[in-house]
């Protein structure tokens, strides 16, 4: 038969609703990380994406990330995106080697949509987190060569009617965080800032402000994390996920909030 032919499988080899398995059978070269295993990251200047975070609030989750990517001591990009919608009700934020991370996110997005279309219903939030954990584990050989990818996954669980946050380690270990998670080179500073101010049932806008201040704190202390850039008007990516779905705040809104809230305590740290 001529191309394009429809992919059909026998009962033993059917990949079911998994897009990653489908890719493995029909186009293994297109899988994230294929071809990376024989090389070491040490020989190359790998682009790294840095601080990202997710904070649970009264109605859902706020996710945020700075916009800087570095390669060694060079700034590789000033406006890279690190927070992505995974589907309508969840998002994924990445830290680590930018190339494999962006590829992993793309595969994850297609995987969730593919499952939904084949099965006729969405995966549960927990199911989505487990899927992502498998992708992170599949990246382990590449991680050992220096291509580490560690995402944060967060979303609105419509069966439990609340936001949930998951963090991962390089081996694919999945950990549900009670209240918030931060990842990447500036995450220690961001996490401390959140820890000091977080409380149960925070309203949405206050949580967005907290995320911006935590990212500023990270940018303040960590060279690989970018702060708000007022000259070029580059601001952190901020997304709110609640019962209405995934909603990315516009640069204007984030810029205005950043100018409003950052100052005061931050100035005091300008030693």
């Amino acid at each position: 038969m001529n191309e394009p032919s429809l992919p059909f499988f026998g009962p033993g080899s059917d990949p079911g609703p998994s897009f990653a398995d489908l890719l493995r059978r029909l186009a293994p070269h297109a899988l994230p990380g294929s071809g990376l295993d024989e090389h070491s990251a040490d020989a190359l200047e790998i682009t790294h994406a840095t601080t990202v975070l997710a904070i649970r609030f009264a109605d859902g989750v706020v996710m945020a990330g700075d916009r800087r990517a570095t390669a060694g001591y060079t700034i590789a990009s000033r406006r890279i995106e690190k927070v992505f919608p995974a589907d309508d009700y969840s998002g994924v934020a990445i830290a680590g080697a930018a190339g494999p991370a962006v590829e992993m996110v793309r595969l994850f997005q297609v995987q969730l949509e593919h499952y939904e279309k084949v099965e006729g219903e969405q995966l549960s939030l927990e199911g989505k987190a487990n899927q992502l954990s498998q992708f992170v584990r599949a990246n382990l050989p590449a991680a050992l060569q220096g291509f580490v990818v560690v995402p944060i996954f967060a979303g609105y669980d419509d069966r439990r009617r609340r936001g949930r946050v998951y963090s991962f380690d390089v081996t694919g270990g999945k950990y549900e965080e009670l209240d918030f998670a931060a990842n990447g080179s500036g995450s220690v500073h961001a996490r401390n800032w959140i820890k000091a101010a977080w409380r149960e049932d925070m309203p949405r806008d206050e949580t967005v402000d907290l995320a911006l201040r935590a990212l500023f704190a990270a940018a303040d202390e960590d060279v690989a994390t970018g702060g708000p850039d007022l000259i070029r008007r580059i601001f952190p990516t901020v997304a709110v996920i609640d019962a209405n779905g995934y909603h990315r705040l516009t640069d204007d809104v984030v810029g205005e909030r950043a100018l409003q809230v950052i100052g005061g305590r931050e100035e005091g740290a300008g030693l």
Binding site: P4, L6, P7, F8, F19, L22, L23, L26, A27, A30, R106, L107, V110, E113, H114, K117, V118
Partner: peptide, 11 residues
């Protein structure tokens, strides 16, 4: 099969 073909191509 159509979903698979479309998702593969789009990816």
């Amino acid at each position: 099969a159509g979903v698979r073909l479309a998702d593969l191509k789009g990816y």
